[in-house]
Amino acid sequence: MAILIDETTEVIVQGITGFQGRFQTKRMLDYGTKIVGGVSPGKGGEDVFGVPVFNTVEEAVEETGANTSIIYVPARFAYDAVLEAIDSGLDLVVCITEGIPLYDEMKIHHRLESSKTMLLGPNCPGAISPEKSKVGLLPDRSFAPGRLGIVSRSGTLTYQISENLTRAGIGQSTVVGIGGDPMPGLTFRDILPMFEEDDETDAVLLIGEIGGSAEEEAAEYIATKMSKPVIGYIAGITAPLGKRMGHAGAIIEGGKGTAESKIEALRDAGVIVAQSLHDVVDTVRKIMR
């Protein structure tokens, strides 16, 4: 099963003729992802590594039957691209783009509320169900099939932790990068129930960081509804107040969103929180045994 994406997922790439779009399309094809089409207005009829390019998402969906889109367009055009994807009735839209204006995002969320489309991101690395499908830019080498689900707000940190786990013989069902945006589409709270229901997932690793209240909201769900074990790790114990730590969402504002408050909320919900990066593998191993 896995969650969000698997071997049946058919993907179109919005912004396929750009540098990033082209490069990542090749990497996803190499991994075995079913990329069935690309979109680039005005470039319809061309192809990228054998993938047909269409002028509009609507046309791409009609011609290919795709159910998922990945967006590699610049921030200024991302609003339009996401709305176009939602309008075409896709099940899942993965938006890699960073730096989308806040008010554009609010309007996107407003539109999402009245549609069936799920948005992963923006400003996220995407998702991978090892050896089934990869929709995003996660590095293949870090992942192997297995029964641990991972959901995370960061990129390279997730790759590093996954790689450590893979080397220790702990594979993953699906790894989901929800991204470092302050107003992401899918949140921890949305992903956890999917892992809870997935029969290929035995336990979940939640990788959080300072800022916002997504971990606290996840803790509420875990405490009341989750039966599978959850392991947590929170980055940013040493982060100062009021400073944005790289990710737009990683900021402690008005004393809210500290690592301590998140760790406490998760522990209260029964999550086993790894104290530091190098405890993560051991903690997961104990639980998975």
Binding site: G155, T156, L157, G236, T238, A239, M245, L277
Partner: peptide, 28 residues
């Protein structure tokens, strides 16, 4: 993306999460 913290161990990492996790481990 640089934020001054005030100690004596300079930290450079690619990725916000990785940089924070590195800082945390140094402190630990």
């Amino acid at each position: 993306n640089y934020v001054r913290i005030g100690g004596d161990i300079g930290i450079i990492a690619n990725g916000a999460g990785l940089a924070m996790a590195t800082m945390d481990l140094v402190k630990l």
